[in-house]
Amino acid sequence: MPDQIPARCVIVGCGMVAQEYMATLTAHPDLVRVTACADLDPERARVFADRHDLTPVTVEEAVEGMAGDLIVILTPPHTHLALAERAVTAGVAVYLEKPLGDDAAAGQRLLDRARAQGVAVGCAPDTVLAPPARLAAQLIEQGVLGTVTSASATLVGPGPESWHPTPQTLYAEGVGPLRDMGPYYLSMLVHLLGPVSTVHGSAQHHRTPRHTLGGESFPAQSPTHVNSLLSFASGASATLTVGWDGSVSATPHLEIRGTDATLALPDPNFHHGTLRLRHSWREPWKELHPPAADPPPGRGIGVLATTRRLTTPHPPWESAELALHVLHLIEAIEHAATREPCPVPAHTR
């Protein structure tokens, strides 16, 4: 652990999202200094290093703490937990892009080891730290909505092949819209409403094969449309719909309903947007604009939050615990889609 900040940070995984992280992290030189990068493809790491004036290192050097105080893991999800465990074992703080991993039991072992060794672990999505989420949490805590009774979360669209250069990876077995986009919606729901106790689920394959922007066809190996009913420990319930088989939807990305008012939130995949509040059908929707931040928040603000905790004797675990609960939820939804409703392990806040 460093004695002071800015901490030295190493990017591990130099794909598309790494560019967004760099934009955020370089805007906060007082907290973090990105000094090196690594990738499972060394040539990709070299190109990224040249672009951002970093030192290219091997993945082994990064996870063993030879290049920095904190590693940011942006590699494919199935590699997250193995890399993070190696780093934690070496005493290196870790921040992971969502999801935490592909196995909740392994995720629990990682967090247990991190606690035992006093190593900080953080995990995306960090949109729960952004101004729209803070304002929504404030309104709920102040009782503006009354008693929250239900919610809905919806992502329906044509799929990432409409913009992603290599969408095949997002349709591979064990990925799909639930594991790729679900963490944004589930994290926000749990952040605002508390832990989920049970789920029901259904999953379908619709459009397959799919086609890249260049016209290449490929199979969809994971369900392309998932519905779930979530029962929260608080007594509230929510529906979750994530699918890549539609063209467009007018349903709000997130809607929280209470006995006194309804709150519509912007897309939880992003760090900005306007909220809408309505008290009854007699009144129009009222737009609520969160306070502006300078510099504007973006992907990577969770890294900054983790960096601030590096010098504390007992780092908090909020984002990692939330990510683990979300991973349990994803597994439970997948299980419930073909079996009886599945109980979810308790989440401690």
Rank of each mutant, 00 (worst) to 15 (best):
A18W: 15
E64T: 15
P315C: 01
A332R: 01
V88F: 08
S202V: 08
G214A: 11
A137I: 06
Y184D: 08
R308P: 03
R113K: 07
H205W: 12
A106W: 06
S202H: 11
A305M: 07
M1N: 03
D41F: 13
L327S: 06
L327C: 03
S234T: 13
G122F: 02
A18Q: 06
W281G: 11
A105L: 13
T348K: 12
S280Y: 11
V92C: 07
D260N: 13
I301A: 07
E318R: 10
G243K: 09
E161R: 01
A320D: 06
P29N: 10
M16A: 10
T241Y: 12
Q4R: 14
V47Y: 15
S280W: 11
A236I: 03
E216D: 13
L70I: 11
N269K: 10
L74Y: 03
A23P: 00
D53P: 00
L54Q: 05
P125G: 02
L254R: 07
A203W: 05
T259V: 05
P76D: 04
R278W: 11
G122A: 06
T26Q: 15
A238P: 01
V199G: 05
T274M: 13
M1L: 11
A27F: 11
E334C: 03
S237Q: 12
M16F: 15
W317E: 10
R299Y: 12
E340G: 09
H328L: 00
T24A: 13
T89S: 05
G159C: 10
A151L: 03
S319G: 11
T311W: 10
R308E: 12
R33P: 05
A82M: 03
V57S: 00
R308I: 06
I140H: 08
K98Q: 10
L110N: 01
L263N: 11
L240R: 00
A116K: 04
T307I: 10
W285D: 07
H325V: 03
D3C: 01
D69R: 00
H211E: 08
L277M: 08
A261H: 09
S280M: 05
L254V: 13
R282K: 07
D294G: 04
P313A: 07
G182S: 02
Q138V: 02
N269S: 14
Q117T: 12
D112S: 09
H164T: 04
G91C: 07
A27Y: 12
S247I: 10
H78Q: 09
V248M: 15
L186H: 10
D103L: 00
A332K: 02
A62V: 05
A172F: 14
P56F: 13
T212R: 14
T239F: 07
D294T: 14
R308W: 11
R339I: 02
V17A: 04
E331K: 00
E283W: 06
T55G: 05
H200E: 08
G300F: 05
S217N: 04
A153L: 04
R33E: 15
T58R: 02
R276E: 08
W163E: 03
G302F: 10
P297H: 12
D50W: 14
T348H: 11
G273W: 04
R349W: 15
V344L: 09
G15N: 09
V32Q: 07
S197T: 13
L40R: 14
C123H: 08
E173R: 04
A116T: 06
V72A: 07
P266W: 08
G300E: 03
A337V: 02
